[in-house]
Design a protein around this nucleic acid. Structure first.
Lengths: 222, 222
DNA sequence: AAGCTCATTACGGTTTTCCGCAATGTGTGA
DNA sequence: TCACACATTGCGGAAAACCGTAATGAGCTT
């Protein structure tokens, strides 16, 4: 057997139909789609109330804004809403984003059941993911498969994150020093901040501060 | 009547199948696909030599790198190659990129026949584009429809993106200057690079280079 | 050809970052 | 309490980024 009723949430209509093809090939026929998170949420809620709930949600993470203003603006918000109301409803994320920390967060915070990277073999992996999730196992695309095992970059502290965030927001090291002093966050001397950044540069193999911010952003840490 | 034989060039397999669905719905049955530009180029060339040429090419612009090293690395390069050898072969670009500048360049340099933005209504627009191109008219998605008329542009160019990418990869401005000189990319003096970055900082309201990279990364431009 | 605009390059000075070293502070175990 | 390790801070010099200005060059109009 297999899932019977599935909802696809993705703003791109062709990906929507690409995923639909995958599902059809697996013998799944009751397929709905939503191009906005708000629509998706309402459909899921309605189906649940009418006792005709979905067996599986497949959703993207990022949604382009257009003339409609949506209360749910990202896939992660949608997942959070769905999983708090129906924790048993399986969710597969299907996204371009391949930041490990992002994946890790989705698994630990919202307990998503699979993460598939949109890529050359995206739909093949998606099929695998669906089978895996049906058998109650978590599936991760190879690109992000070490999101659970790899702990190396988890050892970064809140202080470091805050520091790099401030950098990414355009503040100079001196401004950050002042800012930390005002907020009683220690260490806050210019020298200490330099030293911290130096350590972080080494840790992430970055040539300079710009590189560091880029790397940490790619990992999804900030 | 309609096009008979079409090649789809896109690295994402689900978009590939999404486009295929669009074509099927229009009654087009002979459909090939390629996930690498090199493959696409060879297929087009082979079909041409065997007198069984394609009637239409639908291609993306950006292709992710993987283990294969390709001589043609972007959709634009592919288009350039194809259009110089077979100028009469219609090409439709189907891309996430919605920069007017880009569209304008593709039309003026390579004489592409349509530009469709991957978006919520992407596949519907793609169908329109195919019909339009079949009737020998150029089609542009609404988002970029004024690419031909509008001339005042504060848009970001490929050069700028390359420049910021280099920054994000940890190179110093001097190293970027050397790199550009080696690759014959102009302007390449340190002074020019400083000036360009200054303009970009103003354009994106960034306090410094770090801020600039962070902003542009958030916008998804790099 | 002359005049104009604009892009590119060069250069000097200031600010910020980067880096090493030294001084001070803090906590832990002998 | 002393000694030791380690974190924090301060400081000075080198490198890089930042900023204004000026010279040169390329393209266009008249």
């Amino acid at each position: 057997m297999m899932f019977k009723k599935v909802l696809i949430v993705d703003d791109h209509d062709d990906i929507n139909s690409g995923v639909r093809t995958v599902l059809n090939n697996m013998g799944i026929l009751k397929i709905d789609k939503a191009q906005y998170c708000d629509d998706a949420y309402l459909k899921i809620k309605k189906a649940h109330l009418e006792d005709d709930h979905y067996d599986l949600i497949i959703t993207d993470l990022s949604f382009k804004k257009d003339y409609r203003d949506c209360s749910i603006q990202s896939g992660e918000q949608l997942i959070a809403a769905v999983k708090t109301e129906q924790p048993q409803l399986p969710v597969i994320v299907y996204s371009m984003d391949n930041r490990l920390q992002k994946v890790r967060g989705l698994i630990s915070k919202h307990h998503i059941n699979a993460y598939v990277c949109k890529d050359r073999k995206g739909s093949a992996e998606l099929a695998q993911a669906i089978t895996a999730v049906y058998n109650n196992t978590i599936y991760l695309s190879p690109q992000v498969s070490n999101a659970l095992s790899d702990k190396a970059d988890l050892e970064i502290e809140d202080y470091d994150i805050e520091l790099i965030k401030q950098l990414a927001n355009g503040r100079s090291q001196e401004e950050i020093s002042d800012y930390f002093k005002q907020n009683n966050k220690t260490p806050n001397s210019l020298s200490s901040i330099e030293k911290k950044l130096n350590k972080l540069r080494i840790q992430f193999k970055a040539n300079n501060a710009i590189h560091l911010v880029a790397i940490v952003k790619d990992l999804g840490l900030i």
